[in-house]
Design a binder for these strands. Structure first.
Lengths: 132, 132
DNA sequence: TTGTAGTTTATAATGGTTCTAAACAGCTGT
DNA sequence: ACAGCTGTTTAGAACCATTATAAACTACAA
């Protein structure tokens, strides 16, 4: 299993639940945008044993802390996560609430002219809202 | 009262509560970033009658719908609102959770190269996360 | 003044997320 | 292989921001 080493290297024990969640999250070609609720549904559909909701929360947060997932800054009643942890941006379709990736190369260079004393920029994230 | 006309023109009755909330929100020089909770505290400090929490929610949402407030897209356990409804961006100080305005003129032109069929861009918002 | 539609209010309900504490499972040293 | 430690999973309770409810109230037009 390719995820066993990855988890162990991060100081996370490769439990059955974590490995199953890894497969659902990372065995895919395209970026996966999801809420905990959507992930829970996917898990219910794809695997036969039950994974408790608390474990899903724990795992997603553990993966986020280790840098395998990141939160998408968006106002919604649910928190969105993204398997694409590179620097990139999002289209947000207001009609259906779906997200679409905007790679860094899809956006011209961003020039932040204002500086804040003693602070440095950790990330720059653009949210482009779309309407019909 | 300068807000009476403004409210009436928007189809909102100028009630005592709404006028008091207007003064707290809009009688200031600088942009105000706030959560419902912070607004509730400010109301408790500044006025003597009580305004119910439900009214605060109702009013903020009514003002947002009319375009006098806007939500700031940020992941937090509470929703942030902004009295600056112009097109602009934010610094987000990760250390203390405070927001700082980034005017459009503080950011160079943004070029979104990717297009989505049948969709048009409603807004472009940048969140710049700051660390020490 | 009277009617009505909009508003406020206290309180209950909702729902995503976090906490708890007990059972369980990897892992290391023997 | 076993013991023991510590990390993990789990069901359910708790938490808390937000929304819904429904009754009292109020601005405003007729």
């Amino acid at each position: 299993m390719k995820y066993i080493e990855k988890l162990r290297n991060s100081g996370l024990r490769p439990t059955k639940q974590r490995l199953q969640i890894c497969e659902i999250l990372f065995d895919r070609e395209k970026t996966f945008h999801f809420t905990i609720n959507e992930l829970d549904q996917k898990i219910k559909n794809k695997i036969h044993n039950k994974i408790s909701l608390a474990t899903i929360y724990n795992t997603v947060h553990a993966f986020e802390k280790k840098g395998y997932l990141k939160q998408i800054p968006i106002n919604s009643n649910q928190t969105y996560f993204d398997t694409n942890v590179t620097d990139h941006h999002h289209f947000y379709n207001l009609e259906d609430g779906k997200l679409i990736d905007l790679e860094n190369s899809d956006v011209g260079p961003i020039n932040i002219k204002k500086k804040i004393n003693g602070k440095k920029i950790k990330s720059i994230e653009i949210l482009v809202k779309l309407e019909d």
